[in-house]
Each structure stands twice: as C-alpha cells, then as structure tokens.
Nucleic acid binder design. Structure first.
Length: 273
DNA sequence: GCGATCCTGGCC
DNA sequence: GGCCAGGATCGC
C-alpha cells in the first residue's frame, strides 16, 4: 500500500504523539515482529516516552527515551491510526496506549508489514538496513551518486531499478510508473542501455513525483489513510497508474499495462523510449 | 536476475 | 472460484 509519500504523510500526522508516554503495549498473537523479541518490545516500551518520530524511506522510527527505537514498516496493507474510543480492529497487531488516553494502532490485514525494535541509533546494524540505499529525498544523494549506484546493476531494467530499494529507497509501484513516465523512459530498457543523462532524468523525476505525492497527502487507491484517518488526494494527479486502456491524465497517449517481475507496469509507449 | 512466497480481502 | 493488490525476502 504505502510508498514514501504515504509513509511521510503518516509521520506528519503522528507528530503530536511526541513527548507522550506509553502506558501500556498490546501485541497480537500473529504480530509481524522481525528481528526482535515480543517480550523485549513489551518490557522496554512500557513506561517510555516517545522522544521523537522520524522516517527513512518507507520505515518509521519511534525513538523511546533515546534508549530504544520501535520500527514500523507498513508493507502492503498496513496503516497507523490514532484512535480513542473505537473498538480494536480485527487485524490490529500493535497498540500503544498513551498517557493522553489516545491509542496508536498498527493495523495490517496481510501482515506484510514489519514491527521491529532496536537499541537507540543501531539501525545501521539492522539486517533490513543493509539492503536499503539512500532515501530519494535525502540531501546527501546527488545525480552523480545515483548514477553510480545504478551502474552497479547493468543487466536489470528500469522498472526493476525503481523498485530495488538498495539502489535508492522510497519508490513503490505507483511512483515507479509515474516517475518513468515523467522521465519519458521505457520501463523495459536495461540500465546498460541508458545514458547518464537518462538516469539523471529518472532521479529528478522521482524526486519531483514523490514531493508532489507528499504535497497531495499521498495516494489513496483503495484504503490508504494517514494517522488521523484522512485519505490522500494524489490519485487525482496520477498520469498513468491504474489507467489501463484510458488516455494518460495529460492526454499524451493511451496507457498500456503489462506485467514485469510479477507487478503491473502502466506506461505510454509513444511517450516512453 | 527471476519467480515463488508470505497473507487477507475485494471484485468480477 | 480465480485474479488482483500500494512490498520485500528468499531460494534457485
């Protein structure tokens, strides 16, 4: 479900939780906890204060007392919601009861999401961090660095490159299709057949599209909502995604769909070379 | 590098 | 019933 813009919009709506204290923690029997112990999370979160909340690519980090960090990845169907009196959802896997009586809930029917827990600032040592390149919107990433990272994978196609979080992180299927369309690049083209100029254009398009996604509050195709339960408006600005056999939003041609690496790619052949 | 795989739910 | 879904890892 959520790509970088949706995770960022979720983060923004959770900012009000900073400095609140965790009174109690609930974890479901089937909570998707990875590389952490349930007992550890329960023990070390209880009574802790949420000192800050930050994001890297599609991961959210809740810093607890500057001693530990609770990590959440929303996967395909996950959402974080601030609730008060609502009954606990069937697929709620984590609930933090806070000292203002609100509850932060992680709801994830498919359980492709991730709950993890680390010592403060130990993310670089986490197994999942090793496969993650720089966030597209990170200031330290540059045209030159992006191109250099792309060149490590000469044999993969541009769509795979976009979805490969080790090159640069944050794009998912929607924003990958939109970025390739914006950059006028054929999703099937191999990296070895791209010029530096092509790759630079892809990087610049990705940043532009991701920023627009954030500005519009994220894409709600079916059920994405931010921490306050509000839908995003970016769907109305998507030019090719989910528009098979229709004209692209900017009327430059007919959108076709095909499957690449098991995922749908939406593109306009007349525009993308 | 690629396909299978982890899951539930919605839609045809 | 079958297919599809906003993700990412794992084995070959």
């Amino acid at each position: 479900m959520p790509e970088l813009p949706e995770v960022e919009c979720t983060r923004k709506t959770l900012m009000g939780l900073e400095n609140l204290k965790i009174k109690s923690v609930y974890l479901s029997q089937v909570a998707p906890i990875k590389h952490a112990q349930k007992s550890d999370i329960l023990k070390k979160s209880k009574g802790a204060q949420i000192s800050s909340i930050y994001r890297k690519a599609k991961y959210l980090f809740f810093v607890l007392d500057e001693k530990h960090e609770l990590i959440i990845h929303l996967g395909m169907s996950g959402k974080l919601l601030i609730e008060k009196n609502e009954a606990r959802h069937k697929h709620c896997h984590l609930e933090l009861l806070l000292n203002d009586q609100s509850k932060l809930r992680f709801i994830d029917p498919r359980r492709f999401g991730i709950i993890s827990f680390i010592e403060f600032q130990k993310w670089p040592d986490h197994p999942y961090a090793k496969n993650m390149g720089p966030d597209y919107l990170e200031r330290s990433l540059s045209d030159k660095k992006f191109i250099e990272r792309c060149r490590r994978h000469p044999k993969i196609n541009l769509k795979s490159l976009c979805l490969n979080q080790s090159v640069a992180a944050g794009l998912g299927n929607i924003y990958a299709c939109e970025s390739l369309y914006d950059a006028k690049l054929n999703p099937q083209r191999l990296i070895q057949n791209c010029s530096d100029e092509d790759l630079k254009r892809l990087y610049q398009s990705a940043k532009k599209i991701l920023r627009l996604g954030i500005k519009k509050g994220g894409s709600t195709l079916r059920d994405y909502v931010n921490g306050q339960g509000h839908r995003g408006k970016m769907k109305d600005f998507l030019k090719v995604y989910d528009r098979e056999d229709q004209e692209s939003l900017d009327k430059k041609g007919k959108v076709l769909r095909f499957t690449q690496q098991g995922r749908s790619t939406f593109w306009v052949p007349e525009v993308q070379n």
